[in-house]
């Protein structure tokens, strides 16, 4: 714990609403403690702005412990900032130095329209999920949980995919603004489990079609998504998704 504080210069994207044009504004953040989280730094800055009669910066956040997937900022050109495997809310100011200049921008993608400042609309992810991001189990009809043994390695693999928190950093990082890592994570989570297998072919087709409808770009294997993902979701799942699609193609008649 240190007593030193820092002063920073922030360039923040300000945009009144989805239709308005936006631009970067410069602000000073004063008296920032290295123990603060990045969002707490913004809280403090906002309180300072309010006192100066400037409208505070709008940004999404909720759990502030890296699991809800609300927080979404591109910090100095990197989604969720310079630290690996963390979300913005888990990033701490000790990663920065006194006098630093920090650029803060929203996720940028046609599929994620900006609502205001740093806040975007990620409804596209919900719609991909609605396309087939589930198993068709109706409550009440489930067999005993131990009826289908799932070997640990297989379970662990599905769990690696299931760790996705739906934050959208993969889209923000992708040079093509593609949502393929998210889509792949969901397809892999379900298709790798016996419970998801029966609908696997239908699922992969439907979810990819929904992904495309939203205006995301196409994956060209830059792997930037993996580097930005706070949960370490691997692009190997995209390869898996492709394989699932190849397997599903001959089954076209099912749809």
């Amino acid at each position: 714990m240190s007593e030193k504080t820092m002063n920073l210069t922030l360039y923040v994207w300000r945009q009144a609403n989805a239709k308005a044009p936006g631009k970067m504004e410069r602000y000073e953040a004063k008296g920032i403690s290295p123990d603060m989280s990045f969002l707490e730094m913004l809280d403090v800055t906002n309180e300072q702005l309010i006192k100066q009669g400037i409208e505070p910066i709008v940004f999404d956040h909720d759990c502030r412990e890296g699991i809800c997937g609300m927080c979404s900022q591109v910090i100095n050109g990197v989604p969720h900032g310079p630290e690996e495997l963390v979300t913005v809310c888990q990033l701490h100011m000790r990663r920065f130095n006194d006098g630093d200049t920090i650029f803060i921008e929203p996720w940028r993608s046609k599929a994620f329209p900006i609502e205001k400042d740093l806040m975007v609309d990620r409804g596209a992810f919900d719609r991909i999920m609605q396309a087939y991001g589930y198993t068709s189990i109706t409550c009440g009809g489930a067999p005993d949980a131990n009826d289908h043994p799932i070997p640990k390695w297989q379970l662990d693999r599905a769990m690696d995919a299931a760790e996705c928190i739906g934050c959208g950093a993969c889209v923000a990082a992708c040079p093509n603004a593609s949502g393929m890592l998210f889509t792949a994570a969901k397809v892999a989570h379900l298709n790798m489990l016996p419970q998801g297998k029966p609908e696997g072919a239908r699922r992969v087709k439907a979810m990819i079609a929904a992904h495309d409808l939203e205006g995301f770009g196409n994956c060209t294997n830059h792997y930037e998504c993996e580097a930005a993902c706070p949960k370490g979701v691997k692009t190997a799942f995209i390869s898996y998704l492709n394989k699932e699609l190849i397997k599903a193609l001959p089954k076209g008649a099912q749809d």
């Binding site: 589930y134 409550c139 949980a145 043994p149 640990k152 419970q195």
Partner: peptide
Amino acid sequence: NNIIDQCVAQGVPFARDYAGYL
């Protein structure tokens, strides 16, 4: 107990052992 059954059927990846049991 029904909750656990329901969740597993949805694809919730509860921890399992090498033999595949919860």
